[in-house]
Design a protein around this nucleic acid. Structure first.
Length: 553
RNA sequence: UGGGGUGUCGCCAAGCGGUAAGGCACCAGGUUUUGAUCCUGGCAUGCGGAGGUUCGAAUCCUCCCACCCCAGCCA
């Protein structure tokens, strides 16, 4: 892993802990709930947790926080494992599950009851909310708060045995209903849910809440630094309270960092799901989705995503990160590593009238302008070729560096040509260009000293192949689509996907393997679609366009 | 109006009492058979605000302001 050592407040804490001897080995964990797909925000968390373990010669567990069977599934578990691996990380040992600690957690619940620290409460959800008080007013004690230990033990056992209906009873910690921290107002430890669990089946009808489970899971696994996002900060006193009141085998500590909020995107599971459900995108792995699987299909690389996470840093402030930074990371990676090729998106035929009709000249082009190890590719040149319609104008000002009637242009990796005439139909639409080659310009400037102003890409009409090309742009046209409740649906970019059914690609590109990355010169970075691409029917997705500083003249 | 946080360039982010790193973006040049890459230069007398301590403050103190999180039997 080439991740540079992190230098942030978490590393500072870890270094101090290592130096003081509080911990001898750093153990972190990435604890997703298997109720959805991983997105760019999770990628940051993964990068932080695995990165810190790696940088300190420690370990990082992958633990599914599966305490709420209603929303979870095995399918999500498998997808998450695949995403973590794809990002380039390997967890320590076997995958862990909170559910495999259910018996231990229950035993600890009994322990709290025995010590007078927890009680069974009969309040309904509505009543409980009312008893809880508000942000500014203290709550009131539950009428069941002073039940005897014996009675609580009996009730808890019967909850576990399935004697009560869902919602009829909960187990709560006895802390302080007047605490200014809402999380300390007798939080719920167990609730009754008579649904099968994807891991434990019908073994349980009561399930622990996040608060009662997380810290203890960390203790069981010997997690030294339990890193989560800022919104859990208020839960830390509770996290510590459980560890203080239970005979846990270790003493983990919780630390929080600021969530990643990229501009022009939404990352809440609810909103992403809405995009999928309403058909705005084709699925969770649609190339426009900020999910790990979506970015993968779009053509982002694990290295670029990791690099991006390093670039943005890890702090306790939460701001909006400009997606331009993510775009920079992927361009930077692909510029260095992607093989070059030529693809004409908006074809305009050019007939080279001086070139023999049946002649096929096999030229050679570098796989990469400054990396010989990426080899060369054969490039057939013929009398009829396609160029992009945007690369020709009948007349243009001096800033236009492409083909202009009566002027010259360099065909990338081939000859310099000069446009002689425009062929139009009755409606005045351009059908083709007639041009001629300038002899001796293969790898050489024109002998007459009249150098072309620009270079354009092209594909042989006779030897090229057609391909479907999907041009993706940002899903949202608003910098902060997440602002407001449902407003994000109003900011969807109607042009986020343009499908070109018949683009022309040079023959070498038909050999692309699914998920292979390319730079289509002068256009951008593209990837052969993970699912739809084949040699028989090539399909490429635009990952990101090339940086374009050309201001039209 | 209770509690917990955060405020350094358009964005991210170093800095931890000694006189504002870096990256992204942007702007201006140079190189270039990709208007890409690459290279060079520019870009905070200022660190949310106001006071104060100090020879000296983004860094310490006081007060104020803005924004974020918390009232799921979600995580």
């Amino acid at each position: 892993m080439e991740d540079p050592p992190a230098n942030n407040f978490l590393q500072t804490i870890i270094s101090a802990d290592l130096a003081s001897g509080r911990v001898s080995t750093v153990v972190t964990r990435f604890p997703p709930e298997p109720n959805g797909y991983l997105h760019i925000g999770h990628a940051k968390s993964i990068s932080v947790n695995f990165g810190l373990a790696l940088a300190n010669n420690g370990r990082c567990n992958l633990r599914f926080d599966d305490t709420n069977p209603e929303k979870e599934s095995q399918a999500f578990i498998e997808a998450i494992e695949a995403d973590v691996r794809w990002l380039g990380y390997e967890w320590d040992g076997e995958v862990r599950f909170a559910s495999s600690y259910f018996q231990q957690l229950y035993d600890w619940a009994v322990y709290l009851v025995e010590h007078g620290d927890a009680y069974v409460c009969d309040l309904t959800a509505d009543e409980a909310r009312e008893y809880r008080g508000t942000l500014t007013a203290p709550g009131r004690n539950s009428p069941n708060r002073e039940r005897t230990v014996a009675e609580n033990l009996d009730l808890l056992e019967r909850m576990k045995a399935g004697e009560f209906d869902e919602g009829a009873k909960v187990l709560r910690a006895k802390i302080d209903m007047a605490s200014p921290n809402m999380n300390m107002r007798d939080p719920i430890l167990y609730r009754i849910r008579k649904v099968a669990h994807h891991q434990t089946g019908d073994a349980w009808v009561i399930y622990p809440t996040y608060d009662f489970a997380h810290g203890q899971e960390d203790a069981i696994e010997g997690i030294t630094h339990s890193i989560c996002t800022l919104e859990f900060e208020d839960h830390r006193p509770l996290y510590d309270w459980f560890l203080d009141h239970l005979p846990v085998p270790a003493r983990p500590r919780q630390y929080e960092f600021g969530r990643l909020n990229p501009s022009y995107t939404v990352t809440s599971k609810r909103k992403l799901k809405q995009l999928v459900d309403q058909g705005v995108v084709s699925g969770w792995d649609d190339p426009r989705m900020p999910t790990v699987s979506g970015m993968r299909r779009r053509g982002y690389t694990p290295a670029a995503i990791r690099r991006f996470c390093d670039m943005i840093g890890t702090t306790r402030s939460d701001g909006v990160v400009d997606v331009a930074m993510l775009e920079f990371a992927i361009r930077d990676d692909l510029n260095e590593n992607a093989t070059r090729g030529m693809c004409v998106l908006n074809p305009l035929k050019v007939v080279l009238t001086d070139y023999p009709v049946d002649r096929v000249e096999t030229l050679s082009a570098a796989g990469h302008p400054n990396r010989d190890d990426l080899g060369e590719r054969a490039l057939p040149f013929t009398r009829e070729i396609y160029i992009d319609a945007d690369d020709f104008r009948e007349e243009a000002n001096k800033k236009y560096k492409r083909l202009v009637l009566g002027k010259r242009v360099r065909l990338r990796n081939a000859y310099v040509i000069e446009a002689d005439e425009v062929v139009k139909n009755d409606n005045g639409e351009i059908l083709a260009i007639h041009a001629h080659t300038i002899p001796g310009t293969l790898g050489e400037d024109p002998a007459d000293g009249i150098k072309p102003k620009g270079v354009i890409h092209w594909v042989s009409a006779a030897q090229g192949r057609t391909a479907e090309v999907r041009l993706y742009e940002r899903l949202f046209s608003h910098e902060a689509p997440d602002k407001g409740d449902n407003a994000f649906m109003d900011h969807i970019n109607p042009a986020s996907l343009t499908i070109i059914k018949q683009a022309w690609i040079e023959p070498a590109l038909a050999d692309a393997q699914p998920e292979q990355h390319f730079q289509f010169e002068r256009e951008g970075y593209f990837v052969a679609d993970r699912y739809d691409h084949s040699a028989a029917k090539p399909v490429f997705n635009r990952t990101i366009g090339l940086r374009d500083t050309w201001t039209d003249g």
